[in-house]
């Protein structure tokens, strides 16, 4: 279970202080599919980065299974990103010098274990996201939708408890978007992974069991 209480994040742009996130509190139960919606600049991605341990909040607390992760050292946070979380970026964010297969098994290699195991698991995951025939292709040889599915497979390599996806369909056409979202839902159903995804497309509400709406960094009360 993930619990967030009074989470705030303030950025300083020169002499101006920007409050990107203000007093956000929420709870994600295991197996939930939650969508965070809001207009551009509403703080959706900022919230996801705090949950994905990519950024540190200015104040507030995030608990993973009761453990406060906001004050952990960089090394421990890196370890948690590797073992507990999967993170999907809006812009695919694959490593260009690696093939799809290598992109997926790299975090597995970092976690350790037998090379045969993580290579096999990476191939299986690519099969699950429908790229079993394209595992040796490099990102530039794949379409946007295919790249995003590689990113999903990568996020799953270490069997994460929670998957955070930052507008996973933002750069995709409607067919690819449909494919990616269907893939995420299938993973939630088959593997029981908690999914929190960000979207600004009202149509994406249909994929979520729960909706969080942000406006100017604050939660909109009617969705609480």
């Amino acid at each position: 279970m993930i619990s967030v209480s009074n989470l705030s994040r303030t950025y300083r742009l020169g002499s101006v202080e920007v409050m990107a996130l203000v007093d956000v509190s929420l709870t994600l139960e295991g197996g939930d599919v939650t969508c965070v919606m809001g207009k551009s600049g509403s703080g959706k991605s900022t919230l996801l980065r705090q949950l994905g341990l990519i950024d540190r909040p200015t104040s507030g607390q995030i608990l993973f299974d009761g453990q406060d992760v906001t004050r952990l050292s960089d090394g421990t946070r890196a370890r948690m990103r590797l073992t507990y979380l999967g993170y999907i970026f809006q812009e695919f964010a694959l490593l260009g010098e690696l093939t799809a297969h290598e992109n997926v098994f790299l975090p597995g290699m970092m976690l350790g274990g037998a090379a045969h195991d993580y290579r096999k698991r990476a191939a299986e995951l690519l099969g699950i996201v429908g790229l079993g025939e394209r595992i040796h292709h490099k990102p530039k040889e794949l379409s946007g939708g295919e790249q995003q599915r590689v990113a999903i497979a990568r996020a799953l390599i270490n069997n994460p408890r929670a998957l955070f996806a930052d507008e996973p369909c933002a750069n995709l056409d409607s067919i690819s978007s449909e494919e990616v979202m269907e893939t995420l839902l299938k993973l939630n159903k088959d593997l029981g992974i908690t999914i929190l995804f960000v979207s600004h497309d009202p149509d994406d509400k249909k994929y979520a069991g729960r909706l969080i709406f942000l406006k100017d960094g604050r939660q909109v009360p009617e969705y609480l």
Partner: peptide, 15 residues
């Protein structure tokens, strides 16, 4: 950016 991504997916700074 690539290094940022590597760190975000759990690759350690030491690596």
């Amino acid at each position: 950016r690539q290094i940022g991504i590597e760190r975000a997916i759990g690759i350690t700074s030491a690596s």
